[in-house]
Design a protein around this nucleic acid. Structure first.
Ligand SMILES: [Mg+2]
Length: 223
DNA sequence: GCGACAG
DNA sequence: ATCTTGTCGC
């Protein structure tokens, strides 16, 4: 009665990361995908509500949504976010009618202490290109980007470029973008900018965020 | 030992 | 992330 029932403890989780990080591939995205997906999660006392949404990238129009639910199996530990919401998010993405050409994840890609944030983790597991889109910094140094929409600067970690600090809206706090898998920094910035519709957060992620919270609401109300 | 620390 | 009303600024 003192044991936590996690699939993997802190140490085991780190071992999984050491294994997965070797499979992360950073490379420019050749062709612009037709479909892009975004995923996010909301929480209640002991449940994880994940959602995934599918958009046509060029038109930026929503095509489909999907959901998945599970029990919380891991605490939030900076650097180990994937073990808290990764699995449920992956299940939600798998429930989409078509496999997306690229996925946006709420969190870091390789801009992570071990080079394997949740976006990279999900990308490697699903073997699909992913982009990490975080609202704040986990690691790295950078110079404040210009104040105009589209301005950005590189994010460095241990002297290496690991991402971009991107202004998606004029005079508003920038986003921390980093490639997850089968993607590079420049391609990531391009993809994100194609998804900004006037708000700081890219449209698909705004939708995923709303869906997961709506799901939690409906569930708590017994719907 | 202290401070930092995605969601 | 979540708990929550009003308030400031573009
Ligand atoms: Mg989130």
């Amino acid at each position: 009665m003192k044991e936590y029932l996690w699939p993997a403890g802190i140490e085991e989780a780190k071992e999984v990361q050491r294994d997965l990080k070797e499979r992360v591939k950073i490379t420019p995205l050749k062709r612009t995908p037709e479909f892009i997906a975004a995923a996010d999660a909301a929480f209640s006392d002991d449940l994880v509500f994940a959602s995934a949404t599918l958009y046509r990238l060029q038109e930026l129009i929503c095509e489909k949504n999907s959901l998945a639910k599970g029990r919380i199996k891991f605490p939030y530990v900076p650097g180990l976010l994937a073990f808290r919401e990764g699995n449920v998010i992956i299940e939600a993405i798998r429930r989409l009618p078509v496999s997306p050409g690229v996925i946006l994840i709420d969190g870091q890609g390789i801009a992570h202490p071990e080079g394997i944030g949740i976006a990279s983790h999900v990308g490697v597991v699903m073997n699909i290109p992913t982009v990490g889109c975080a609202k704040s910094r986990l690691v790295g140094e950078y110079q404040e980007p210009g104040h105009a929409k589209g301005d950005w600067s590189y994010l460095y970690y241990n002297g290496i470029k690991v991402g971009a600090v991107l202004r998606t809206r004029r005079n508003v706090k920038p986003l921390f973008i980093s490639p997850g898998h089968l993607m590079d920094i420049e391609s990531s910035v391009e993809i994100i900018m194609m998804c900004v519709s006037g708000y700081r957060i890219p449209e698909p992620l705004r939708t995923a965020d709303r869906l997961s919270r709506q799901m939690r609401r409906d569930y708590s109300e017994g719907l």
